[in-house]
C-alpha cells in the first residue's frame, strides 16, 4: 500500500519541520523528492540525510518570477512532477485593526498566490500523464478563524476553495487536489508559545497533546498515493479532535 516508487514529488517549505517530514515520508515510500525552500542549508542537510532521489531546489515564494520557474526546474531535475505538496507558508500576525496592507498582502502572496502559480505550473504535465496529486497544506484556522491571524486564516481558507475548484476541473484527468488542515503541531512555530498558552491550547484538544509533523506527513502520503484516487476536493483535518469538521 501507498507505494510511490517512480513518482516525483515537489515539496515546498521542505526546510521547515512539517515540510521536512513530508519529504521524508514521501521519500520513504519510494518517491523522488524535490526539496524547495528559502534557506538552502537545511535543504542540503535534508538531501544529504535522504541520499539518493533527493534534489535541492531553492526558491523564494515571495518572488513570483522564481515561483513560476520552480515547476520547470523540478521537472528538469526529476523528469516530471507527479505530486505537488504546497506546504510553505508564512505568518505575520497582528490584530485586524492594526494589520498593515503589507502584512495582509505578503501572507496572501506566499500562502495563496504562490500556490496558485505552482499548481498551474505542474498542471500541463499531470494532464498529459493522466495522473497527478496535489496536496495543499491548509490549517485548522482556515476553517475556524483565529484572532490575530485574519491574513493567515484568509489564505488558508482560500487554499481550500481553490483546491475544490481545481479538483472539479481536472478530476476527469486522473488528477486529485486535496487539502490537509493541521491543528496544533509541535514545530519551531509552536515552540515560541508560552507555557500558559500551551496549557490553554491543550485544554481544547481532545487528544490531549499537540500533533507531530510525521502525523501530517502520513496524511499527505495517503493523499499522494494511487490508493486515494477517489478522494478529491477533500480537506483532511489532522487536529486531535480540536475541531471536528
Amino acid at each position: 500500500m501507498f507505494d510511490l516508487t517512480g513518482k516525483n514529488a515537489l515539496v515546498t517549505g521542505a526546510s521547515g519541520g512539517i515540510g521536512a517530514d513530508i519529504a521524508r515520508a514521501l521519500h520513504a515510500q519510494g518517491a523522488s523528492v524535490g526539496l524547495s525552500g528559502t534557506r538552502t542549508e537545511p535543504l542540503e542537510a535534508l538531501a544529504a540525510e535522504l541520499g539518493e532521489r533527493a534534489y535541492v531546489l531553492p526558491c523564494n515564494l515571495s518572488d513570483m518570477e522564481a515561483v513560476k520557474a520552480l515547476p520547470k526546474q523540478a521537472a528538469e531535475a526529476m523528469g516530471s512532477v507527479d505530486i505537488l505538496v504546497n506546504n510553505a507558508g508564512i505568518t505575520r500576525d497582528n490584530l485586524f485593526m492594526r494589520m498593515s496592507d503589507d502584512e495582509w498582502q505578503s501572507v496572501l502572496d506566499v500562502n495563496l498566490t504562490a500556490t496558485f502559480q505552482l499548481c498551474k505550473g505542474v498542471m500541463r504535465g499531470m494532464m498529459k500523464a493522466r495522473w497527478g496529486r496535489i496536496v495543499n497544506i491548509s490549517s485548522i484556522v482556515g476553517a475556524t478563524g483565529n484572532p490575530g491571524q485574519a491574513n493567515y486564516a484568509a489564505s488558508k481558507a482560500g487554499l481550500i476553495g481553490m483546491s475544490k475548484s481545481l479538483a472539479y476541473e481536472v478530476a476527469s484527468r486522473g488528477i486529485t487536489v486535496n487539502a490537509v488542515a493541521p491543528g496544533f503541531i509541535a514545530t519551531a512555530m509552536t515552540d515560541k508559545l508560552t507555557d500558559d498558552q500551551k496549557t490553554g491550547i491543550m485544554g481544547q484538544i481532545p487528544a490531549g497533546r499537540m500533533g507531530t509533523p510525521d502525523e501530517i506527513a502520513s496524511a499527505v502520503v495517503y493523499l499522494a498515493s494511487s490508493e486515494s484516487a477517489y478522494i478529491t476536493g477533500a480537506t483532511l483535518h489532522v487536529n486531535g479532535g480540536m475541531a471536528m469538521l
Binding site: R124, M127, K128, E169, V170, S172, R173
Partner: peptide, 9 residues
C-alpha cells in the same frame, strides 16, 4: 472546455 485547453497544448 478542458479538452480545448488540451488540444491547444
Amino acid at each position: 472546455s478542458l479538452d480545448t485547453v488540451e488540444l491547444v497544448m
